[in-house]
């Protein structure tokens, strides 16, 4: 289970890395188009990623707890 989480995390960061790189390059034009609407999109995306990080954190702690229960029995 922990392995799966780690895998998911690596995939996520691998997916996000080129995205941030791309964003930095076209930043000025793209982010400023449509009255800077994409800044709002980026902010909401950041909050969403934050909630995902919370889920991953909770998942890992629960996995640890489950493992403890298995050892306990």
């Amino acid at each position: 289970m922990l392995k799966a989480v780690r895998k998911a995390f690596t995939t996520l960061s691998l997916f996000l890395f080129p995205f941030t790189f791309l964003m930095a390059q076209e930043d000025a034009d793209f982010m400023r188009s449509m009255g800077k609407m994409y800044v709002v999109v980026a902010v909401i995306a950041a909050i969403f990623i934050g909630l995902v990080i919370f889920l991953v954190y909770l998942d890992r702690k629960l996995t640890r707890l489950e493992n403890q229960i298995i050892h306990h029995e």
Binding site: R32, K36, V39, V43, A46, I47, G50, F54
Partner: peptide
């Protein structure tokens, strides 16, 4: 701990907003 998560998110969203 949730408060800190919100605080970090606040800093990150604030930084994105500040950039532009």
């Amino acid at each position: 701990s949730v408060g800190i998560l919100y605080g970090i998110l606040g800093l990150v969203t604030g930084a994105i907003w500040a950039k532009h």
